[in-house]
Design a protein around this nucleic acid. Structure first.
Length: 781
RNA sequence: GCGCGGUUAGCUCAGUGGUAGAGCACUACCUUGACACGGUAGGGGUCAGAGGUUCGAACCCUCUACCGCGCACCA
């Protein structure tokens, strides 16, 4: 009750300017404070100058009202708020639109507000309320309002007439993802998809834009067409079925939807809206002859996009015809859709529904959601911000393959990517490395190794014959590493983990192939002495080999090249999805396409078969058992240790040093050659009985003991310090494993395999420590 | 409010229960014979925090903090 004895209801609002548009006041039916008022009327304060009876609006009860929010009383403005509109529909409230399309108030807002901008009107409305004593309190309040991205102003909900589409085939669309016939990668998006479809709302398909497909609706009303014309139109529409999809007849202010067969007309027709097949030109002309016009709205852009999976393959909508369209038959449903998760509702879900509706089947079996590339601050790329790099510029600067590889390498499944030009630079460096690695191979023999079919090489492959008996430990090692890489990459592809595939390619090509295998192979390939330039490239392989001055065996050399070709041939194919251009170029340039059938790589690397892991038979043919890579691995470890010695002793890196090796077992001369080359040694003397003088720096591993005599005079303190640090590290590892093994819980519960692994690790570390300790003792003279 | 991601080396990020990884950046050295867009050797991490499960946790569970996204709401 107020001072005047009347009952007042206090309402909290952030939109006082919309009071003239209020057509009710709502309370929650369970709110005991107000139940006695439900059904009564209340005086709306604005506009001020209005007859009393026009100010009266009902007090209604609606569950939507949260009685703990504000005062528990809600002003209902159906024309300017979505939720209020819904309340209005439930209670059949009148709708009073008090604004013009440009955001200014119209005459229904009352004379003091009319013509004002909505924000000016807000202030004026408050003044008016104050004047008439209706304002209780004014206080700052923060809420969330949607802003227009383009105009950067609060969005004004506004009534308008639009066309809506009831989504078709919702159930099968949900089911195919739920039951796994269609898979999302990563699969967490399936949940988002399901949630959206569960709560799906009709699709507003009309847009007020200048261009697009026009809404296929023709309309006429009584101001343009006579009753006779309208009745005639109804007859035409009825006969034109099925070109008539449906129509609405408006009579006595009520719109009634009808299928094409409706006939009875017993009342005055105000308007007809007819949806017809846009290809029905005659029908369209007939209607236009009866003063019908096409609705000016155009369709939402996704109305064409959702047809994409079949519209791109010659779909006509005529089932008999489409079932004989070769492209559709071959590729619908297709295997993969690649897209961004931001359009999962706009596009993906709708394509699935359209697929079921128009094709009777799902459109694709997998959906791969890429990450979104953002700028360094994590913002989406946008034209407005201008933070998007120009791909063409990047391609000009680094190359298309570089952009592709660098980006894929930095994009894990399902994660957004912060764009960094450094990634593209890395791609460029990578391509350069690949190019040079191939160049190295070509410099070894200008004519390439003649292709030949080898019994051990998979049929259809093109590599020169590899003789298993001529394989060195390095060859076996790289073949096993290649086999491993093929397995990893194939798995990564199957799991849509493309960045893992690039990581494996990087490791295999750069670290394993270039850094170790190619370097080691130089021992067998010998040193190139004459420039290739100007020479007759047709020279046969014997004369080619003579350009290498070391006493390398031509047979071993040819075999080595065959291995290199085998590896490179596989490598290029593995790389091709990421580096399409450079691999194609190299494929032909290196001669891999020669003598290949056109559909197996002769024409393009694109048709070359995807590399397969070695079979058991191939492995045994090449002598690749599980331990075949151990000699090379130990050799490379010893090389690293030897390089360490050199560095720790601060020896001139350019200086050729003499090492002495005391091998643990048999070691072919070729292995010593490799060691010598990789260590940049002047010589390696193999002395099985070597007794090093006290103070000789050394390194040991399963392959043997490596000594660096005469160097002991230089800087042994540094080496001692390094060894001590190393031993401390190893001690820590030993301690960790020892503690685990000492725990009876561990030894009893753990699987045998893990237990063995730990025991092996302990003994490995202990050996390592013994070797380090021996080296240290030797130094301590 | 509900849901989904994320938090690991200086930076950007991999890593689904058993020895903490990559690229870049950094340090030192090297114009070597495919490549300096390169090579060799290094330094650098309480895996956001707390609790739990486990013989064992970066990883599984619970909670917290912070960052980001989506949906709903926003009188």
């Amino acid at each position: 009750p107020g001072p005047d004895g009347k009952i007042w209801l206090t309402i909290a609002t952030t939109r006082p300017e919309t009071i003239p548009g209020d057509t009710a006041v709502a309370v929650n039916p369970k709110d005991t404070r107000y139940t006695h008022l439900i059904g009564k009327h209340i005086i709306r304060p604005l506009p001020i100058h209005l007859p009393h009876e026009k100010k009266l609006i009902p007090i209604i009860a609606d569950e939507h009202v949260d009685f703990e929010f504000g005062t528990g009383v809600l002003k209902v403005t159906p024309a300017h708020d979505q939720a209020d509109f819904d309340i209005g529909q439930r209670h059949k409230l009148p709708i009073v639109d008090i604004m013009n399309p440009d955001g200014t108030m119209n005459e229904l807002a009352g004379e003091s507000l009319a013509g004002l901008d909505r924000f000016e009107a807000r202030a004026v409305a408050v003044e008016r309320l104050k004047e008439i004593g209706a304002l209780v309190e004014e206080k700052p309040y923060e809420n969330n309002v949607g802003f227009s991205q383009r105009a950067d102003v609060p969005i004004e909900p506004r009534l308008s007439e639009q066309w809506f589409l009831k989504y078709p085939s919702v159930q099968p669309s949900m089911a195919c993802v739920a039951d796994g016939r269609m898979k999302f990668h990563p699969d967490r998006w399936a949940k988002v998809y399901d949630h959206w479809l569960t709560n799906i709302q009709d699709w507003c398909i009309s847009r007020q834009l200048w261009w697009g497909h026009r809404v296929p609706v023709w309309v006429a009303d009584e101001t343009r067409a006579s009753q006779g014309q309208l009745l005639e139109a109804l007859e035409i529409l009825r006969k034109a079925n099925p070109k008539t999809v449906g129509f609405a007849v408006i009579q006595s202010g009520t719109r009634t939807l009808h299928g094409p067969n409706w006939t009875s007309v017993d009342k005055h027709i105000q308007a007809i809206e007819a949806c017809i097949d846009p290809s029905a030109t005659n029908l369209m002309n007939d209607l236009e002859g009866l003063n019908f016009t096409q609705d000016p709205d155009v369709l939402d852009t996704w109305c064409s996009s959702w047809l994409w999976p079949f519209a791109t393959m010659g779909w006509t909508g005529d089932k008999a015809h489409d079932s004989n369209t070769p492209t559709l038959r071959a590729f619908y449903p297709t295997t993969d859709l690649v897209t961004g998760p931001d359009i999962i509702f706009f596009w993906v879900a709708r394509m699935i529904m359209a697929g079921y509706e128009y094709m009777g089947d799902l459109p694709f079996r997998n959906v791969y959601f890429t990450g979104i590339i953002r700028d360094k601050q994590g913002r989406k790329m946008s034209k407005t911000l201008g933070n998007s790099p120009d791909p063409l510029e990047l391609i000009a600067k680094y190359g298309a393959d570089a952009l592709r590889f660098g980006t894929m390498r930095s994009a894990p499944l399902g994660q957004d990517v912060l764009f960094d030009e450094k990634d593209v630079e890395l791609g460029r460096n990578f391509c350069n490395k690949l190019w040079n690695a191939c160049r190295f191979r070509q410099m070894q023999s200008s004519a390439g190794v003649p292709p030949a079919s080898a019994s051990g090489v998979p049929p259809g492959d093109f590599e020169a014959e590899i003789h298993p008996d001529l394989l060195t430990s390095d060859d076996k090692w790289i073949l096993l590493r290649l086999d491993q890489a093929i397995r990893e990459i194939t798995t990564a592809f199957a799991e849509y983990k493309f960045n893992e595939a690039t990581a494996t390619l990087y490791r295999f090509f750069w670290s394993e192939y270039c850094d170790w295998y190619v370097e080691a192979s130089k021992a067998a390939l010998g040193r190139f002495v004459e420039p290739l330039k100007g020479e007759n490239v047709k020279s046969d392989s014997d004369s080619t080999i003579q350009r290498f001055n070391d006493s390398t065996s031509p047979k071993l050399r040819a075999n080595k090249l065959a291995v290199i070709d085998f590896v490179l041939g596989n490598l290029l194919r593995l790389f091709h999805p990421f580096l399409p251009f450079i691999t194609e170029e190299l494929w032909h340039g290196m001669g891999f396409s020669k003598d290949m059938p056109a559909d197996r790589g002769g024409q393009s690397i694109m048709f070359a078969p995807w590399p397969k892991p070695l079979t058991g038979d191939e492995k045994s043919y090449f002598g690749l058992d599980d331990t075949a890579d151990q000699v090379a691995a130990a050799k490379y470890e010893l090389v690293t240790m030897g390089r360490n010695l050199r560095r720790e002793l601060k020896l001139d890196p350019a200086k050729k040093l003499k090492f002495i090796l005391k091998p643990s077992g048999e070691l072919p001369a070729a292995e010593i050659e490799v060691l010598k080359l990789l260590l940049n040694a002047e010589a390696i003397d193999v002395v099985s009985t070597y007794a090093p003088p006290k103070g000789t720096p050394s390194a040991s591993n399963p392959l043997g003991d490596l000594y660096l005599p005469l160097a002991g005079l230089i800087d042994m303190q540094a080496e001692r310090t390094r060894l001590q640090k190393e031993i401390a590290k190893v001690d820590a590892e030993i301690e960790k494993v020892r503690q685990k093994l000492a725990n009876p819980n561990f030894t009893q519960k753990v699987p045998a395999k893990v237990l063995e692994e730990h025991q092996q690790r302990l003994s490995d570390w202990q050996n390592k420590k013994a070797q380090l300790q021996a080296s240290l003792d030797a130094l301590s003279g």
